[in-house]
Design a binder for these strands. Structure first.
Lengths: 237, 237
DNA sequence: TTCATAAAATACGTTTTCGTATTTTATTTA
DNA sequence: TAAATAAAATACGAAAACGTATTTTATGAA
C-alpha cells in the first residue's frame, strides 16, 4: 500500500503535530524510515489487544478511537484527525494497544515501525517529551470524559458531542456549516447512549432552533446555547 | 505536624510501593528529605487546581481521590491506601493537581517536596520509570472506569463498587468480613449515582443472599455472584 | 433515474433511575 | 446511658432513558 515517499521537513501537516518542535536530524531520521500509507473508510488501523508495532501520523481523514471491553458496545474516546499521532508508547508496559482505531473516512498516514521510532526518540529529548505530553493530555481528556459520562444527562452529552463534531469536522472547509462523517450510532457510542436517543435529541435541538441539519449535514449551530446546555447546569437566563 | 522520622530502607510499607525497586542511594536521599506527617479523617491532602508541591507516600489509612469539575457532585476515581503514591508528576505540564484527595480515615504519610523529589528521580532511572508506569496504570484504570460509567447499569456498578471496597478494606485484618470507611454517598460518588440507589441496591443484594451487612460492616460476600453481576452481561447458568 | 438498501426519524410502551419525603437505625455527644 | 445528630433504609411519584416497531428519508448500485 506504500504510496510516494514525502519529506517530514516539508510536510504540510507537521505544523499541527508533535513533530513541529523537533530538530532537523530527528525529522530526517523519521523521513528516512517512515512509510506513507492509506486506509479505506471503515477499515481498522489497529485493534484493542494487538501488539503496538509502530507509530501512526495521521495526514488526512478521520478515525474514531474506541474502547470495547468485553461487550459489543464500543465507547468512542476521541476522534483522531490531521496532525494527530496514534500508537505512540513510552515503554514496554505499553506493548499492547488498549483501544482500537477505525477510519470513518478514507485516511492517509505515515507509519514508523516502533523499533525505529524508539531509537529516534531515544536520541531526541524533545520528541520524548512530546510523547509524554501526549499521555498527559490523554489522561486529562479521559478524566473529563469520565466526569461527563457519570454526571451529565443524555441531552447534555449530545450537546457536547455536537460541539466536538463541529470542532472536528468544520476545519476542513471555510464554509459555514459542516458535514460529519459520523452516523447517529457513532454519536451514541461517543456519549454512551442509543441512536434513537441521539435522533430524538438532535430533533429537539432543531425544534428549539439551536441547530439546522439533515442527517450528516449541519448548516447552523447556536454555539452559545449548545455550550450552555453542555457545560452549565443552571442556564443563566 | 511532623512526627518521628523513619527510614525508607526499613519502612514496612516500602515493599508495596514504587520504592521497592529503588537502589539504596535513592532511598537514602528520600529518607533524608522526607517529612513524616499525618492527616485527620475528612481533611483534604490537596485540592483540584492546587499547584503540585510534593509527593505523598501513603503509609497508613485511606483517601478518596476525586474529580470535581465545576459541579458540586464529585466522582471518586480511586481509593488510595498503604503503599500508594499521590502527587507524583512527570514534568512541568503537571504543575497543577487535576484531582483532589480527601482522607476517609486518619492517614499517615511521608512527604517529599517536589523540588527535592525531582532531583532524586532525575538521578534514578528506575524511579523515573516507576513514575511513568504509575501514569500508564492510571490511564488504564480510568479507561476501564469510563467504560463502566458509560455502559453498566447502576446495579452492575454497585456490585463492582462493593468488590472494590472488599478488596480495599478487607486486607487490613484477616477476619472474614470487613468494615468500609465509605458512606453510601461515597459509594454513590464512586459509581455516579445517588445514595438512595446505593441503599436500595445493597438491600436487593441482601435479599438475594449475595451479601450480609449493616451500614458499614460487611460480614459476607458471594464473590462469584457479585463478579457475575459486575462483569458479565449474560450470567451463564 | 430507478430500485434496493441502509440510515434516520418517529412514536410509544417499558424499564430504569432519580429525587423528595419519611421512617428507622447508627453514631456521637453530653 | 440518654438525648441529639447523622446516616441509612424505605416508599413512591416523576422524569429520564431505553428498546421495539414502523415510517420516512438518504444513499448507493444497477
Amino acid at each position: 500500500m506504500a504510496i510516494t515517499q514525502h519529506d517530514c521537513i516539508t510536510c504540510k501537516v507537521r505544523a499541527c503535530s508533535i513533530l513541529n518542535e523537533c530538530d532537523k536530524d530527528t525529522l530526517k531520521a523519521i523521513s528516512k524510515f517512515k512509510l506513507t500509507k492509506s486506509l479505506a473508510n471503515g477499515k481498522r488501523l489497529f485493534t484493542e489487544g494487538d501488539p503496538v508495532d509502530g507509530v501512526y501520523f495521521i495526514k488526512k481523514g478521520f478515525l474514531k478511537v474506541e474502547l470495547n471491553g468485553k461487550e459489543d458496545r464500543p465507547l468512542i474516546l476521541k476522534i483522531a484527525g490531521k496532525g494527530n499521532v496514534l500508537g505512540y508508547r513510552i515503554n514496554s508496559k505499553h506493548a499492547v494497544h488498549t483501544c482500537s482505531a477505525t477510519a470513518v473516512t478514507d485516511v492517509q498516514y505515515c507509519y514508523v515501525p516502533y523499533a525505529l521510532f524508539d531509537k529516534i526518540s531515544n536520541k531526541s529529548t524533545v520528541l520524548k517529551h512530546q510523547i509524554i505530553n501526549l499521555f498527559i493530555d490523554e489522561l486529562e481528556m479521559i478524566k473529563k470524559k469520565a466526569l461527563t459520562l457519570a454526571h451529565k444527562t443524555v441531552r447534555e452529552k449530545v450537546a457536547e458531542a455536537i460541539l466536538l463534531l463541529a470542532e472536528t469536522f468544520s476545519c476542513e472547509n471555510e464554509e459555514p456549516g459542516f458535514q460529519i462523517s459520523f452516523c447517529r450510532q457513532d454519536i451514541a457510542d461517543l456519549v454512551g447512549t442509543t441512536k434513537e436517543q441521539v435522533s430524538k435529541i438532535i430533533k429537539d435541538f432543531e425544534k428549539e432552533g439551536l441547530i439546522k441539519c439533515t442527517a450528516k449535514k449541519f448548516s447552523y449551530l447556536d454555539l452559545v446555547s449548545l455550550n450552555k446546555i453542555a457545560f452549565f447546569k443552571h442556564p443563566s437566563i
